[in-house]
Design a protein around this nucleic acid. Sequence first.
DNA 1: AGGCCGTCCGAACGTTCGTTCGGTCTGAAG
DNA 2: CTTCAGACCGAACGAACGTTCGGACGGCCT
Lengths: 202, 202
Amino acid sequence: MPTADSRLDTLLADAARIFAERGFHGTSMRDLSRASGLSLSGIYHYVESKHELLFLIQDRCFTEVAEGARLAVARETEPEARLRAFIRQHVLFFTAHMHEMKVLSHEAEELTGTMATAIRRRKREYVAFVTQLLEDIDVRGVNPQIAAYALFGMINWIYTWYRPSGEIQPGYLADEIARLFLDGYLQPASHAAHPLAASHGG
Amino acid sequence: MPTADSRLDTLLADAARIFAERGFHGTSMRDLSRASGLSLSGIYHYVESKHELLFLIQDRCFTEVAEGARLAVARETEPEARLRAFIRQHVLFFTAHMHEMKVLSHEAEELTGTMATAIRRRKREYVAFVTQLLEDIDVRGVNPQIAAYALFGMINWIYTWYRPSGEIQPGYLADEIARLFLDGYLQPASHAAHPLAASHGG
DNA sequence: AGGCCGTCCGAACGTTCGTTCGGTCTGAAG
DNA sequence: CTTCAGACCGAACGAACGTTCGGACGGCCT
């Protein structure tokens, strides 16, 4: 006998999977009923509307990803190490929660009213958090806003091509993305493999 | 008296704008009727279905972006210069055709059947083209597939945050993205400004 | 003048949508 | 044994959807 809370949890997980597969507008409540095992009307015992489903998926996902990032970054003191820790955490979380993160990334504009306001505020805070991480590293002449969005692009684009069942391991992907962003494509790999030898101090 | 071809052109432009604003599923043919000035049934004089509208937008956009990339790259002979030319071209095209490129990027999974097959083939070819550009630069230990998708992520993510009416000029954005991808965030800007001095030869 | 084709429209079709309503069942409390 | 609230369902609601159909209008050819 599942508790009401855990029943909502599995409902949200089912909804995230099917929203990721077919899109929010492309999914009907009847699709979700079939996927979750609940009846069409039974879903409304747990949520008030289809939009609240989307909001709950995005809100919970944002809570987890932001908390994980703060924890990962807090373990480091050096600015560059903190940025590396963030990239690794964000990539690993993304690959471990592809459905939710795809819904968070791809269905960003489907909410309206107070739900949209709440999610947008969280997103602004998260972007500001990463921008601060970038600004803590003293690099002259780089636009930190563009750099932050470029970094988010590299990582969040993952959902369009990465398949966890493929050959690329999440940890390898995280390393490659961190190296690409920090050292660039032209930098020889041997340098990047030993970050202490990289020329970022002067 | 507009020709039939130009009428279809403006219809596709209107559709791209409104698909970009509200999403493919979030846009009704009645919305499009209102936006285009044609009657609801009049639209069907030019296209067979809503999905064909989406296909034509994506297909024509892909033709333009691929042709532009080939032309830009063909003007250079050095592998690194060819890659820089591609990045600049792709970013500039993206900022100049935000609506169409957002529809191309964001509504990638809404087509089915032969239309989906045709677009997917074009996309595969374009990715292979860029992957080849990357492989032409001899960088050891870098996964060119991941690098290609990371580059696409940096650029295609633009539609989620960039506003052409803002302060960031397209040319400046293209330079920053090229520099970030090629030299990385940690590389001092002065080095990147003189690519001949960068250490990519071994 | 008459026929025709391209352009475009108003009205309607059948379907599917998100949501609601009136219930049933179950297990715990009194 | 009765009561009651939480969990859940079948059937239906009105609205909106993509698409179709029959026809109107205007210019061009004969």
